[in-house]
């Protein structure tokens, strides 16, 4: 049971669909190149609903992990998912770019997830295209055992971009975007595994933004990092919010309070409360939320 109703205004998802009206529906996928000033391709203006989750039920084989989730994520904002362990934060996050498809026996039993008004669980959706636009950063940093340069260009090369000059530009831009450039610019050809934990995580973020997604999903990106590295990543998130829509899962209340614009609190697979971060932390509408954010949970 959802006690706190979503407090966002319902904006029609048509805005984005209209903006693409001039293009043929069969247009080839576009590779974002560094010259694009407005990242994310078609820009959903800040504050508009980008991801619209409604009545979502999700199952792992027979066990239901998500119950009737209704959530609207705004473009160019940072949305934080908080909640006790096992409440379904990662599950929901992984629904957004359909990473759950990789696990046997998972299914969306009811409800829809719409991005730009497109239901991403429709059978005609190309998961690969979806994942290009909805990037992901994992809890455990997972740089590939390749050079830093190769790591960043991996996604673009997949799309057939092989122009050395362009790739160089993307690498620099992404690394700068991930606040890593100064630290690694002299050793782009050394292995990504040779970096420190924090650097590795920022490398993964750089890798994710290199393909210019619209949404970046981060699943506890700082849980394996020390406070200094965490601070750097948080800083980075602040910079990235200008260009990307970010959804972040975190166990760290302060982190949620510091970085996010809106916060969703989950408990036992249900969305309990979803509101502006300030409200959640200072004036929660729900008693469970209050107990959790104040650390009196039990």
């Amino acid at each position: 049971m959802v006690t706190a109703a979503p407090i966002l205004m319902d904006t029609p998802p048509s805005a984005s669909a209209k903006s693409s009206a001039g293009k043929s529906p069969f247009s080839l996928p576009t590779v974002a190149v560094p010259s694009v000033s407005a990242p994310g391709g078609l820009a959903a203006p800040a504050g508009e609903t980008l991801v619209d989750i409604s009545h979502l039920d999700f199952f792992y084989q027979t066990s239901q992990a998500l119950h009737d989730i209704n959530l609207k994520i705004e473009a160019k904002k940072v949305t934080a998912f908080i909640g006790p362990s096992g409440c379904g934060k990662s599950t929901l996050l992984r629904c957004l770019n359909r990473m759950n498809d990789l696990i046997d026996g998972t299914r969306v039993a009811r409800g829809t997830i719409k991005i730009h008004g497109v239901d991403i669980y429709q059978p005609d959706v190309d998961v690969i295209e979806l994942r290009k636009r909805v990037g992901m950063v994992f809890q455990k940093s997972n740089p590939f055992p390749k050079s830093i340069y190769e790591n960043i260009t991996y996604g673009l090369r997949l799309q057939g971009l092989n122009d050395k000059a362009k790739l160089d530009a993307v690498v620099e831009k992404s690394l700068r975007g991930a606040a890593l450039w100064d630290e690694v610019k002299d050793r782009l050809d050394s292995s990504g595994l040779g970096l420190s934990g924090g650097q590795q995580q920022r490398l993964c973020i750089a890798r994710a933004i290199a393909v210019e997604p619209e949404v970046i999903l981060m699943d506890e990106p700082c849980s394996a990092l020390d406070p200094v590295a965490t601070a750097k990543v948080e800083e980075l998130i602040q910079e990235l919010r200008e260009r990307f829509t970010i959804v972040i899962v975190t166990h760290n209340m302060q982190q949620a309070a510091r970085c996010s614009d809106t916060t969703a609190f989950f408990y036992l697979g249900k969305l309990i409360e979803f509101a502006a971060t300030r409200d959640i932390f200072t004036n929660p509408a729900n008693a469970q939320t209050e107990a959790y954010v104040s650390g009196r949970f039990g």
Partner: peptide
């Protein structure tokens, strides 16, 4: 796959 489209027209959210 596709040619990189350098005209940088905003891409549709075409994930079909």
């Amino acid at each position: 796959m596709s040619e990189p489209n350098s005209t940088a027209a905003p891409a549709a959210f075409a994930i079909q």
